[in-house]
Design a binder for these strands. Structure first.
Lengths: 219, 219
DNA sequence: ATTGATGTTCTGTTACTTCTGAAAGAACAG
DNA sequence: CTGTTCTTTCAGAAGTAACAGAACATCAAT
């Protein structure tokens, strides 16, 4: 029953210990469980080669950017999936522990790029990924800015305040710190401006740039 | 002699086993070594509180972006240092093994943000960081793009090519892959355009944006 | 050739992150 | 209430990356 792909379960797999001396008694419950399990197997998305390729690559990319491999893989799977998936489906498809899925999903939820939805007739939570790529990256970037850029700006400001002008080399240190602080302020500025614009506009601006470049190259 | 900060070495620390029955004989070599060591200690940059703060924070930030802590710390140290530092100075200042410094410096060199320079009268290599913050980040971003964005674009293209249109759900997968590919193409476009502009222009554009925002807010 | 100083590569250890399986907890159906 | 299904939490196992120290390599001076 565990090796989903290799064989379908037989009814016998569900037979209870209620065997009689004359033979097995299959009650409704048993038959129902059997039917359910077969349906589950049929519904379970088998990964195509392309999907596997995408999910594996995405996982690797994640690790390079300080994002957990499993988290990234789950996101990739949900992004490609046309329907919301239950935690167990995710676990089986990616061959990871159920608990691992739980914590990973939670992380994706805190980023706001995955959310739980409910499917009629199913008590389990199903998870689906946001599909708007631009919005997704905007969210991730915003979070990371908050967690990494902002504290750095903070630190630089504190450093500049703490700088003792009587100390040897204070002038040079101040110069360097100010240059770095200037950069981070500018990045923040850029981010704020991007945030203000709706997704479509950024996309259009970029496309405009592309066209201009092409015209220039042609002319 | 190892605990640089705690005490200066005495001449006795260098005395050879050439002691005579009547008393110690200090030859020129010994005195010279002594003088050198004292000079070294005096020259060795003692980190100020602010410098420590900056270096530690930078190291932490590095780890979050998939950059080795030591690599980031060394960069921070060199960035703040008004003069090029020898490997051993770096090792002692940051309390890491020289071998670690060697490999870390090499990595910084491959990124092009640190380079070896020679100091007159010193056979050792000294290392200094690029000081132009904008240029530094441009270099790092360019490298990371090459190592991470480009392979991802590659993968997406391959996926789209490999997609079997007869397979179930191929249409949906194509949709998702194309959306993602579009995003990565746009990012590449943006990067190329930024690269084309000299550092100063990007800075000016940003500042312009800031001013516009301020005017708008005031008016 | 020898010695000492400097720089690099390799290897085993350490520290850290990720992951699993078990157990507890929560929601629900009968 | 009781058993079932689903989810979360947690402690420890497994895996990974960083690191120190040793061995090796290079070079300069003599």
């Amino acid at each position: 029953m565990r090796d989903r792909a290799s064989r379908l379960p037989g009814v016998a797999d569900f037979a209870r210990e209620s065997d009689t001396p004359t033979g097995r008694v299959l009650d409704f419950c048993v038959v129902f469980q059997y039917i359910q399990s077969v349906l589950k197997v049929l519904i379970m998305a088998e990964l195509t080669g392309v999907q596997k390729q995408y999910i594996l690559h995405w996982g690797e990319m994640g690790t390079r950017w300080g994002i957990n491999r499993t988290v990234a893989q789950i996101h990739a799977l949900l992004y490609l999936s046309p329907r919301a998936l239950a935690a167990e489906e995710i676990a089986e498809t990616l061959s990871v522990a159920r608990s691992n899925v739980s914590t990973s999903i939670r992380e994706l939820e805190t980023w706001g790029i995955v959310r739980a939805v409910h499917v009629l007739g199913d008590r389990r939570e199903h998870y689906e990924s946001m599909k708007d790529v631009w919005e997704m990256f905007r969210l991730v970037i915003e979070q990371r800015k908050r967690r990494e850029i902002d504290p750095t700006r903070e630190m630089l400001r504190r450093c500049l305040a703490d700088l003792d002008p009587h100390e040897a080399g204070a002038d040079y240190t101040r110069l360097r710190l100010e240059a770095m602080a200037g950069f981070f302020e500018a990045v923040t500025e850029l981010h704020d401006q991007m945030k203000r614009l709706p997704t479509g506009t950024v996309r259009k601006l970029l496309r405009m740039g592309t066209k201009m470049k092409k015209v220039k190259a042609a002319g």
